[in-house]
């Protein structure tokens, strides 16, 4: 049962993918769609191989921004969350500004950040961090506050210090929420990085994947555009899977969300 369902969880989406791609390939061939409108999947695949070095070095540029921004989001977000739960007053005063982060469209402020920042790379990292930050803050705050009141009473009755409460109770209670935040934030950091690159446009020095997409668009090199798009998507999926694995590693022993239903 367990092996079977694992296999199915893998096979079903792959099967759907294969069918959709075949259909796409067939339709493009059948209607003779020109490749500067919609390229066939096979052509996208060949382009991916042919332009591999160009695309891969661009991917690397985008990934560096993504990882750096994600890392900063996690560090800053966690610190801010810890500050927030220290006192209601702090949270009340500052949480609305954290929400501001969430509701301000990054495309709207990216030009400003690009002007203000010393170099484009810094600007890109700042933009992507702004996008990735909020889920970490809100999830971690929620987690640090979602402590079983009975356990809290137990700790108090045992005269636990604030530090003991934090390490032995609040942090483990917050862990599932934190990992939920990681999943969201990792994807958003990637999106933030790509969007910021778009805004920076061809003026950007780094030449990340968004730059390749813009360039390919100008040159009507649509197969390359698709190949770049494919790389971004697959990177997002891999990031997500990485976070899932990390979360399973950390919580697999005890948290409901990671328990495999027994047959």
């Amino acid at each position: 049962m367990s092996l079977d369902s694992k296999f199915m969880a893998f096979a079903m989406p792959v099967g759907v993918g294969v069918i959709l791609l075949s259909l796409w390939e067939f339709l493009v061939w059948f209607y003779q769609v020109p490749k500067f409108l919609v390229p066939a999947p096979s052509l996208v695949a060949t382009t991916l191989v042919q332009d591999w070095w160009l695309l891969f070095s661009s991917l690397w540029v985008t990934l560096k921004v993504t990882f750096f921004a994600f890392f900063l989001s996690v560090v800053i977000g966690t610190l801010v969350a810890f500050l927030f739960v220290q006192s209601r007053v702090v949270e009340m005063s500052f949480f609305p500004y954290a929400v501001l982060l969430q509701v301000t469209p990054i495309v709207a402020i990216a030009p400003l950040i690009i002007i203000w920042a010393k170099d484009t790379n810094t600007a890109l990292v700042i933009c992507a961090t702004l996008v990735g930050l909020f889920p970490i803050i809100s999830n971690t705050v929620l987690g640090l506050r979602s402590v079983n009141p009975g356990l809290l009473n137990l700790f108090k009755m045992n005269k636990a210090t604030r530090f003991q409460q934090l390490v032995r109770l609040r942090i483990p209670s917050a862990a599932p929420y934190f990992f939920g935040g990681l999943r969201i934030s990792s994807g958003l950091s990637l999106i933030g990085a790509v969007v910021a690159e778009f805004v920076a446009g061809t003026g950007g020095s780094g030449a990340g994947l968004a730059y390749q997409i813009l360039q390919a668009g100008f040159q009507l090199n649509i197969p390359r555009l698709f190949a770049a798009l494919f790389l971004i998507t697959i990177t997002g999926v891999l990031l997500f899977l990485l976070m899932v694995a990390l979360s399973r590693l950390a919580l697999g022993g005890w948290h409901e969300s990671e328990l495999v239903p027994e047959a």
Partner: peptide
């Protein structure tokens, strides 16, 4: 010591 109505164990 106080024993609660539910076991109140740390799941982790």
């Amino acid at each position: 010591v106080f024993v609660f109505q539910d076991a109140t164990l740390m799941p982790w």
